[in-house]
Amino acid sequence: MKGFNISKYSKPFILVAFVLILTALRPTTFPTVGNIANVLWSVSVIGIMVCGTIFVFLVGGIDLSIATLCGFSAVVVVEVIHFFGDTTLGVLAGVIAAICVGAMAGCVHGFIITTFNIPAFLVTFASQSVFLGLSMVITNNKIVSCTAPAAFTAIGAMKVFGFPLPIYFMLVIAIASWYVLRKTEFGRYIYAVGGNATASEISGINVKKSTILCYVFSGITTAIGGIVLASMTQQAAAATGSGYTNDVITAGVIGGVSLLGGVGTVPGAIFGAVLMGLLNNGLNLMSVPSTHAGLVKGLVIIIAVGFDAMQHRDQSRKRAGFRLFKKKAA
């Protein structure tokens, strides 16, 4: 009922309409192989990240540190590769290190938020500054390029069956996260916790542990997003990933994920990511500078969340009325 709910069946039509509109507007540049690859790359990074952050949204949390954590993990992977002398072993170590950093960050977020009962936005707002500082300290405020080994550049650039590798990462992560949320016991607990934490606690769910795990997942996918981004651009800096906080949250929101918790699906979030990818690409093709895109994206957030808030308000009013009636009759 809640969430920015585009009917299930209209979603493909919206995508097709979007593609057609872009094709019509930019017939020479949009439907080209090169550009489609661009769209897919853009989609994949947002998609990878939103598949983890959806867990946080579902328990009613938020992560404002996506952008700088993404940058930090990009810096970590690149620095570790350099430390290992640009070897393939270094790539492995770097990837593991970056993922560990992401998981750790999520763990700390979750722990502080649940133990001290502090709003998630504040904790992640403060930690974004920490991650930014860490990246700047490590890179000494410089862009660190990393063009070797091939194992690293392949992460972002290699094509399999004509599609860029990150798309496959996104699909794997999306399927994994869909599986966890849709199929497992844990996934069902996540929706329960987001829907009513007190009732979940009474039903024997360890609310604290589940919430922390959600932040850990979010940290891990953010780190993977950072790794892919670093590989795609063959460099890392503190600014890597800037802007992705908004993109990921917007993707979630237009994909029907409620920021109030308890509502949202992985396919919805992927739909949101694709739409965001197309939006980014479309704005780009229309020669709208990336600096202006924030205008459109900001408005999209306000409209989508405003819609959600409106529905929620109506529902709670209805509910209050309902309860009032019950009380009277008693």
Binding site: P119, P289, H292, A293, G294, I302, V305
Partner: peptide
């Protein structure tokens, strides 16, 4: 008025104001 959660509403206007500045 719209009852959008504060942090998300002002996060959105943060990017809107910045974009307007560029415009």
């Amino acid at each position: 008025r719209m009852e959008i959660p504060e942090f998300i509403g002002t996060l959105a206007t943060m990017s809107v104001f910045r974009a307007l500045t560029y415009v």
